[in-house]
């Protein structure tokens, strides 16, 4: 263990911990922007600057290892002014388009600017050409001007997904996140899920909602057997997008694939069946629940009476819930009286 002092509090942390982790362990908040718990430290934004006694210049807490006996100060007028300057510099390029930005209300930059009292674009520059938003995949829109070049998306694509298909291209005011040759994007959306601002947004639905307007319902993905935990964001009975906010939860720890994050449009597809159908004179025609279920009950009973229960069978579903599968086999076994029940586990 390593012992250090942060804001006059004695902290003891495992060797190798960073100053930021030590502060968090002691319940002391250091402002961050590029840092994200599930990624290794990036150290690009310099919001997390702190004083270390005996070191002439402030250091970044996110990637500086906590040494034994360090005395750290996380807040001072000088540090606050340095952080304010970081934000002022980011606002040189970042447009103040918060009202039309998807991320409004859940934007780390917006929160920090508000917290540090930066109220306008205080630094100017030569006029430069604004870049238009574009679809970088069919699901993901990129708004290059909003990018704060924190590097989270690049880190996540490489570290979490093991793909590494994006990188920071060019330099200075013209830097942007662009493709990295040799690796192919699979549209998993990990980049947009870690973007602290609205530089990468979900392009599936035109309709959007502020975070406090929509409801977030946590559920289990309906595709493969991994069983990822995700949040359906819902407004007026419609799914608007899928998010993940809990990076500590098994089995997926906040990560999704293209199907889990973007594959929910089928739920309100116009092809959805909305009425029971019954075959009459060779055609399937719309019916009522009462007629359809009445017909199912009487026909199944009739066939059971005529041919015995083993003349009937059922395919239950790897799509449906446990409760529904239980009831299905109970229906076959207890009501029909056959063990002819199976499903597509083999298919």
């Amino acid at each position: 263990m390593v012992n250090l002092t942060i804001d006059a509090v004695q902290v003891s942390v495992p060797e190798g911990s960073t100053i930021l982790e030590a502060a968090q362990a002691a319940g002391i908040r250091i402002p961050t922007l590029c840092w994200l718990k599930k990624l290794s430290p990036i150290g690009s934004c310099r919001m997390c600057v702190v004083h270390v006694d005996g070191v002439s210049r402030p250091v970044t807490a996110c990637d500086t290892v906590a040494g034994d006996g360090l005395v750290v100060t996380t807040d001072s007028d000088e540090l606050r002014e340095m952080r304010r300057d970081v934000l002022r510099l980011l606002l040189v390029r970042h447009p103040l388009d918060c009202p039309v930005c998807d991320k409004g209300g859940e934007c780390d930059l917006q929160d920090l600017v508000t917290e540090f009292g930066v109220t306008a674009k205080e630094y100017g520059t030569e006029p430069f050409e604004r870049q238009l938003p574009r679809y970088v995949s069919p699901f993901i829109q990129q708004w290059p001007d909003r990018c704060v070049l924190c590097g989270r998306c690049v880190q996540a694509c490489t570290e979490i997904k093991g793909i590494g298909c994006i990188q920071i291209v060019d330099n200075g005011l013209h830097s942007y996140i662009g493709p990295k040759p040799g690796a192919e994007c699979v549209s998993c959306g990990e980049c947009l899920s870690v973007c602290p601002v609205g530089a990468l947004t979900d392009g599936v639905r035109e309709t959007k909602a502020r975070i406090w307007q929509s409801e977030r319902v946590e559920t289990t993905c309906g595709y493969c057997g991994v069983g990822c935990q995700l949040e359906l964001n819902v407004l007026d009975g419609r799914i608007l997008r899928v998010t993940t906010t809990d990076f500590d939860k098994a089995p997926n720890h906040g990560t999704l694939c293209v199907k889990g994050r973007f594959g929910w449009e089928f739920v309100d597809h116009p092809d959805r069946l909305t009425k029971p159908l019954v075959r009459k004179d060779g055609d399937l025609v719309e019916s009522t629940w009462d007629e359809a279920l009445g017909l199912v009950a009487s026909r199944l009973q009739q066939i059971k009476d005529e041919h015995g229960p083993d003349a009937l069978g059922g395919f239950t579903s790897a799509r449906c819930t446990n409760e529904e599968n239980y009831l299905f086999q109970k229906f076959l076994r207890a009501v029909i009286g056959t063990n002819n029940v199976d499903h597509c586990a083999r298919l």
Binding site: C221, G225, A318
Partner: peptide, 11 residues
């Protein structure tokens, strides 16, 4: 599949 394990578990 999302619940192929459960469909087996449920009989």
């Amino acid at each position: 599949q999302n619940n192929v394990q459960g469909a087996c578990d449920m009989g």
